[in-house]
Design a protein around this nucleic acid. Structure first.
Length: 136
DNA sequence: GCCAACGTTGGC
DNA sequence: GCCAACGTTGGC
């Protein structure tokens, strides 16, 4: 099983929207590296949702329930979408500053490649972030 | 709102 | 295939 971060602008699709909908098609990705990551997702993988506008923070977790398929919103080009469902909201969102300041997360691709909208996360990094989300 | 960094495009 | 120009994104 693999771990991911999916970035989203809350005005386009927020974690609240996912909470309401329970499941959604994650489409609209138009970056090759991000697309390649989407193609690597398998059913059962977990993905944290990151809000990239407003408070920049990880807000909760979604589960991949449908692996990559053609993105119907793309009229030209070879783009894909995945299906995800709501899993849970973090007790406390983990903001960008705390990700940056944790020495265990210096290799996090979200930080190193800030423009990548679908980022891989290692199991160790995943555990650290979960821990941060549970701190009082 | 500004600026730096990055990704993509186009011309040679 | 390279590089400059351009557009977009991200962070403050």
């Amino acid at each position: 099983m693999s771990y991911w971060i999916l970035k989203s602008e809350p005005s386009a699709y927020s974690f609240d929207d996912l909470t309401r909908d329970q499941a959604t098609v994650w489409d609209g990705v138009r970056n090759y590296q991000a697309r390649n990551n989407l193609k690597l997702m398998r059913i059962g993988d977990l993905a944290m949702i990151y809000h990239s506008v407003g408070p920049r923070e990880l807000v909760g977790i979604a589960k991949v329930e449908q692996s990559a398929f053609k993105d119907a919103s793309a009229t030209v080009g070879d783009w894909v979408a995945v299906g995800v469902k709501f899993l849970r909201r973090f007790k406390k969102p983990v903001n960008l500053a705390s990700l940056r300041s944790d020495p265990r997360l210096t290799g996090l691709s979200l930080i190193k490649q800030s423009r990548l909208s679908v980022c891989p996360v290692s199991e160790q990094e995943w555990r650290v972030i979960i821990e941060l989300s549970e701190q009082p």
